[in-house]
Design a protein around this nucleic acid. Sequence first.
DNA 1: ACTGCCATTGTAAACGTTTCAAATGTTCAT
DNA 2: ATGAACATTTGAAACGTTTACAATGGCAGT
Lengths: 342, 342
Amino acid sequence: MTSKSTMRDVASKAGVSIATVSRVINSPDEVPTETVERVRAAMRYLNYRPNINGRRLKMAQTRSVGVLVPTMANPVFATSVQGIEQAAHEDGLTVLLTSSNYDPQRELGAVSTLLNNRVDGLILTLANADDNPVIDLLKAENIPFVLLFNQPARKDVASISVDNARSAYDMTQAMIAQGHRSLAMVAGRFESSDRSKQRFDGFGKALSDAGLGAARLCQVGFGETELFAPLKSFLTGPDAVTGLVCSTDMLAIAAMSACREHGLSVPGDVSVGGIDGIAVGGLISPKLCSAVQPTQEMGQQALAFLRGLIRGQTNPQSLILPHQLSTGESIGPARHPSSPRL
Amino acid sequence: MTSKSTMRDVASKAGVSIATVSRVINSPDEVPTETVERVRAAMRYLNYRPNINGRRLKMAQTRSVGVLVPTMANPVFATSVQGIEQAAHEDGLTVLLTSSNYDPQRELGAVSTLLNNRVDGLILTLANADDNPVIDLLKAENIPFVLLFNQPARKDVASISVDNARSAYDMTQAMIAQGHRSLAMVAGRFESSDRSKQRFDGFGKALSDAGLGAARLCQVGFGETELFAPLKSFLTGPDAVTGLVCSTDMLAIAAMSACREHGLSVPGDVSVGGIDGIAVGGLISPKLCSAVQPTQEMGQQALAFLRGLIRGQTNPQSLILPHQLSTGESIGPARHPSSPRL
DNA sequence: ACTGCCATTGTAAACGTTTCAAATGTTCAT
DNA sequence: ATGAACATTTGAAACGTTTACAATGGCAGT
């Protein structure tokens, strides 16, 4: 009942050679209309579906791209994948999806799988874009790739990102402008995310530019949403902060939750800011103040860059998109020192 | 510098035939250790990477699965994909990802792309699982597939879901138990989501079982997060409701936001319940009360089912997982009629 | 020395495409 | 008639694997 039909079947059904069938498929204009119709009819009749593996073998080109993200569980990556998928669809490209769970080990394995699949190019969000064996491998094999969200130091790799340090800097400065003097950053492990480190650097710079003391850091595992314990020493006691700058919106939302569990109100007792600009941040109460990046567009743009590289464009471009502080309610004036918490 | 090396190169480098190389790759135990080592060394030396397209062409099997979801922008689907990807990884399968944007037209196109890619099987979340040409196509071509989240009427297709009607029923009953008598459902368009319709049916049944009037419905487009206007007539005026049952958590979160924009507090003035159990629901304030489904596990389970079908298992299984009402703060006692809003 | 057996390896034919070079047929100017 | 020029079509050789089958050689038993 089913479709085992090949080009040869179509050819004989239509009374032509397989070369003609191929031409009808790939460049119908070079074939007289009458023939095209006859062949098309045979295809319909036989329910013919070209075997892409035959084609790929011959063409040494798969019209597919590999995507590697840390996880789908964070909306920021899910949204970027949505952008990639959409752009790929418009280009007639297929997306092969893998995720690393923030584990550098798995990154290499995943990319290897993707390469085994002979993808034409890759879009990657890596734990660490500097000094990463994955990049060495890709460079060595000369496979086109674009980094997404990573902001690498080296200039010979294509990348799309925001200015991570700057976005944290701006967010921190906004808090300082509200009178906050005692701040800490909540960030994912640096070894799992270079963005995290870069954002912490921006946080530190904002503090020192304002003449405030050393940067305090609460580092937590990725995917962690239970921040009650990790934040305890930052939210209570003599060294309690009045504001938390978080390296991602997910962490910010989790931090707000932890504040409430500690009996603190946001932004009354503690201000909380995030970075990323995930959609749900704008729907919750208090509305999350975030350094927003155009996540979905970044995914689309990454695919556009990749398409260029695949087509043979030789100089990898880097694009650093502007971020924008959202008007959020999660940041307010600092509690005055003379009105201590109860 | 690069890897154009083929099995033939490896063979001649190692001084064996390509058949032996193939054997080293696929069943090393049938080859003496000494030979295996020699061939492996040649592979390393030449940086050999098997061409999967050659293999696929020969084997008529791709070890890849296609996935179709409405969108990555809703965490419930992103999370399920995360589960699928993880399970696929463990099985050494590659995931091809597509999305439909809730558009039945695009569903067919996306599946067609997937089939062109000769995936071994598919995991699908369809707009409507009953009477869907995609299913007819798959049945006709005899391709293994599993529906995820869809709860089809017909029993000859594999599926993983919760009991949609029942989850809405339970949520509604919980609200009624809190004294709510005037409820409405906020739901996505039925033509974009059969879950939406099934959940509305459950909502209606709970109302009628409790002897409450006709089911009121606020139908909104998917991806819509601005619910201020759509909910206006439900939240203000003489017919204002005291509770909103939402067909998804994303809608519930958007609805809570709309309530606040209308100057109403949740759950003080209006109770809001969702369905799905997305992670972020547990982090916001008030904590979203939801009919929780084990989203990621469902993805894994779907892949397990699919694996079975691919291996030739003939009877498609349907699994309806239990849902669980979460202890959320977004639902409270109904405002007593005698204490009207200001 | 012959036979048969086993372990190991090799030969060659697929799998379904694309595409180059060549064959066929048609038209038209001479 | 002849052949040039062109449009259309075809034959056949890849692309890189897997695998059935055959070949080789060593060794034990007689």
